[in-house]
Amino acid sequence: MVYHVITIEDTGETYKCDERISVLEGMENLGKKGIPVGCRGGGCGVCKIEIVSGNYKKRVMSRDHVSEEEEAKGMVLACRVKPLGEMTVRVLGKMKKNVCKVAEQPVEV
């Protein structure tokens, strides 16, 4: 198994991610936090990140959340990206971006 070190720039969190799984799954598997977790399937856009540095493989993701232009600039969904080397990422996803406006008072979770 080949692992690569992922750094989440916002929190300074680092973890080793198996190159066969996504950057998001690698974070979750170790109980690490920093990137918001949504559907894990490229559909909901919650785990949007910007790749600051590093090489990666990616899969198709929803155009509702990542335009072709953004994708070309390294803005991707963390659930669709597998590391090919050491990576540094920055979080763009806003977990509560879609929450009903009427219900915007903090929900106790």
């Binding site: 909901c44 977990m95 509560k96 879609n98 929900v107 979770v109």
Partner: peptide, 21 residues
């Protein structure tokens, strides 16, 4: 509402209100 949606956890998770396609 937490108990209504998830009877055992008795709390809403963030994803219930915000993760949709």
């Amino acid at each position: 509402v937490g108990r209504g949606i998830f009877y055992h956890d008795r709390k809403l998770n963030d994803r219930f209100l915000s993760v949709v396609t």
